[in-house]
């Protein structure tokens, strides 16, 4: 059964078309990076998958079930979400925050606590279990948010710019943790940094899906050689591939002035 099957999805707000005829399939254990300019509809796509907004037409199937027909509990077993600015300003401890993500299990105190602790261990944050989430640094907060994402044990994970605003070391560790989670779940990551995608694992098994103005601009395997050209079309600036056989990076070209 396909994990996620989106057919002809249209979402509009007022007269503005946010998502325009999106068709996207994600198979079990597949890894997908979603890129695109600001306002392209990336976050809206995630919210639609989560059943958080009404759709105009088209269908979104999770494991073959329409997402809007699922109860919140059923949906929470199929898809978990790491939103941008995930952590609330509520002064609760990290462990309580993660326990709350176990809601769907309706389990006893001890079981929830143990599950939350092992999720904290997995992201290397167990020493902060009793600290308030409001007192953690940005990188620490994002680890706690990731632990909450994982502890929901959904079969599809959605991460919206998970490494935004973090230093390079923290960015790398967030992506590595996502790569680990991707061994047991399908994963869709929104990112602006195409060069972090290799951290998800084997490029030949990762897809890059680009959104532009509510449409899918391209859908390529991450090591496709035409990627730099397609990125240039997508962002409208010159992009250049640097590096050799080892690690390639694609960056805006320095010499040709970027449009300001």
């Amino acid at each position: 059964m396909t994990q996620l099957d989106i057919q002809g999805l249209v979402v509009s707000r007022g007269s503005r078309l946010i998502l325009d005829n999106i068709t996207l399939r994600v198979e079990r254990l597949e890894r997908v990076a979603v890129i695109g300019p600001n306002g392209a509809g990336k976050t809206t796509l995630m919210r639609a998958i989560l059943g958080l907004l009404p759709t105009d037409s088209g269908s979104i199937l999770l494991d073959g079930f329409p997402t809007l027909k699922l109860t919140p509990l059923e949906r929470a077993a199929k898809v978990a979400w790491l939103p941008q600015q995930a952590l609330a300003e509520e002064p609760i401890s990290a462990i309580e925050y993660i326990r709350a993500a176990r809601f769907r299990f309706g389990e006893g105190d001890l079981a929830a606590r143990n599950a939350a602790l092992s999720a904290l261990k997995m992201v290397g944050a167990d020493k902060w279990a009793n600290r308030l989430i409001t007192q953690l640094s940005g990188g620490e907060q994002q680890r706690v948010a990731l632990a909450a994402l994982f502890t929901q044990e959904a079969s599809l994970l959605l991460a919206d710019e998970p490494a935004n605003h973090l230093d390079p070391a923290q960015q790398a560790s967030v992506w590595r943790l996502l790569a680990r989670a991707a061994m047991s779940s399908s994963i869709i990551v929104i990112t602006h940094d195409i060069n972090l995608v290799p951290l998800l694992g084997d490029l030949s098994k990762t897809r890059v899906v680009a959104l532009n103005q509510g449409r899918i601009a391209f859908d390529l395997v991450a090591n496709d050689s035409s990627l730099p050209d397609r990125l240039r079309e997508l962002y409208g600036i010159e992009m250049q591939e640097y590096g050799d056989g080892g690690q390639r990076v694609i960056l805006p070209k320095v010499s040709s002035g970027c449009p300001v």
């Binding site: 929470a76 898809v79 978990a80 979400w81 509520e90 809601f103 769907r104």
Partner: peptide, 18 residues
């Protein structure tokens, strides 16, 4: 239910709360 609701209604919804 209230504990996950204080974390934001969309997040609460995505974690299984009606």
């Amino acid at each position: 239910a209230l504990q996950i609701l204080v974390l934001g209604e969309d997040v609460a919804h995505s974690r299984g709360l009606n």
